[in-house]
């Protein structure tokens, strides 16, 4: 007795599951290999408060620490290395340059499957 049919079925299921991302992406036409383009602020807006790479990795940490410092310690502004003094505000400072949340924040967040709850309260666009 071999039960060959059952084994083959099980094995096929296993292989299909293991390689399902491959088939799914083929079925979808192979898109999504590259991160979606993000709408960057106009050059006139000036430099970001940290360098770009750091922001990509750790912006959530910056926002988190801003949050505590502003709300709990009343430290509302910060002097950057280049001498600029900025207000620690998601809405005012960050969204001030990155004016379109959907074209910047959401695109990347959706791409990597991250759902921050900042925008449960904070208002996304000026006048929104």
């Amino acid at each position: 007795m071999y039960d060959g049919g059952k084994v083959v079925f099980g094995l096929a299921l296993f292989v299909a599951l293991c390689t399902s991302p491959l088939w799914l992406s083929v079925a979808r036409g192979g898109g999504g290999a590259e991160a979606p383009p993000l709408q960057m602020p106009a050059p006139a807006a000036g430099k970001c408060v940290r360098d770009g790479e750091w922001m990509r990795n750790s912006h959530m940490e910056l926002l988190n620490s801003w949050r505590d410092e502003v709300v709990r310690e009343g430290k509302r502004s910060e002097q950057l290395a280049d001498g600029r003094v900025i207000e620690k505000s998601l809405t005012k400072t960050c969204l001030g340059c990155h004016t379109d949340k959907t074209q910047f924040c959401d695109r990347c967040h959706d791409y990597v499957g991250v759902k921050p709850f900042c925008f449960d309260c904070h208002v996304e666009t000026a006048g929104g």
Binding site: R76, T91, K92, L95, D120, C121, V123, E124, G127, G128
Partner: peptide, 22 residues
């Protein structure tokens, strides 16, 4: 009319006058 300068709160939290500390 939501004023983006001041974040509204989520459901499930307590709020009150802050003496306009901002």
């Amino acid at each position: 009319h939501v004023d983006p300068a001041y974040p509204p709160r989520a459901r499930g939290v307590v709020e009150k006058c802050t003496m306009c500390s901002e």
